[in-house]
Amino acid sequence: MKGPEVLRSHAGVLRTRVGACWPGSHAIFRGHDLHGELGAMDWLELYVFGITGRRYSDQEIRLLHGIWVMTSYPDARLWNNRVGAMAGSARSSAVLGLSAAIAVTEARIYGGGPGVRAIDFFLRAGKAVKAGGDLGAFVRAELASRRIYGYGRPINTIDERLPSLIPLAVSLGFDKGRHYEMAFEVERILLKESKPFLRMNFAALTAALAADLGFSPRQYQLFNILKTLAGIPPCIVEAQCLPEGALFPTPCDEIVYEGLGARSWVR
């Protein structure tokens, strides 16, 4: 089938295997009765089950919870949080602020972008090593063609989240995972290659852990993006308590103009 026939075959109906609701009756979530079989499920467990269709052990869910908790910073200076807080300050809807802040988290230099790139890197590296390749050679080839995400960090190269994440992973038994161990090995290779600024950060280790849990890059994209979520609402709530417009108010002289001088539009 090709051309408009493809679209015609999908017109006017929802064919789904992930589920649906029958208002007044019941709802099916990936083949299970949401209110019956899944009614007592942990919310994050339901979330990742929705993404992958896989059920996770208690240890895996505790790890995923930890990943979300450790990087939810209620700091309205952070760019994504700032968007939420600005919505509060500007007396917009809190949910509009929250939604926009999540969307903004899908950024190139932090949040969503590095996460997807990092898990893709570990999965490809893992495949190469499994096929008999050398990790050092893989890293060098990667460095020659593109950036390795998950190593190095803007503002400060030390990642304060790792000393919390590593013991959690160890205590839950995830420190023997192939990609987890590879994350440390890649750091050693990068440091040996005289790139001391490329220390492992939270994005690398969480992506490696997710790779060990069987996430694909696209599945991880949907899990990873919410790991800063819990930091946003406090910023919104606090900004709503400020006088309206009082978050980061900018006087005219704090704008540094670097463009052309005055000229006339009238010809």
Binding site: V13, L14, T16, G19, A20, G53
Partner: peptide, 15 residues
């Protein structure tokens, strides 16, 4: 509010 057809579930989508 389109009619729904629930097809076989449980298969894991590889995305």
């Amino acid at each position: 509010f389109y009619p729904v057809e629930l097809v076989e579930s449980g298969a894991r989508e590889e995305t």
